[in-house]
Amino acid sequence: MELNLDFIKDNNNIIVKVKGVLDAHFSPQFEKKVSEYIKPLNNHLIIDLSNVSHIASAGFGALMPIKNIQDSKGKKIVLIGLNDNVKKIFNLLGFSNVIKEYKTLEEAKSSL
């Protein structure tokens, strides 16, 4: 089992395609790699979770330092592709109040 991150530049946006699970084991490396990548840049961030089958509290938590970086630059962070199970926990933990999520990439792009 491993975590795969694909960084794609798309006009003014960065798309991060994530493959794997975001549990207490993989979340620290997810946070570190994404943070390091976006820090020198000045783009909106779209995180594609359509190939992530499982996100634990550590995984959602890892989004907060990333959101902090984006907020400090006045740039957005949005999510796409949450499966039903993941979305339920995302809502339950209240993350839906602070991070927007969309079904498709097109919807996410038009929100930015």
């Binding site: 946070e31 634990a56 509290s57 550590a58 959602f60 938590g61 890892a62 907060m64 330092p65 959101k67 902090n68 926990i89 339950l92 933990l93 209240g94 993350f95 109040n97 602070v98």
Partner: peptide, 22 residues
């Protein structure tokens, strides 16, 4: 306090809250 939690960009501390809600 979820509002405070998110305001401080905390990355840990919601596990037990999650367990109790499930």
């Amino acid at each position: 306090d979820l509002e405070q939690h998110f305001k401080e960009y905390k990355k840990r501390g919601l596990g037990i809250f999650l367990i109790k809600n499930i």
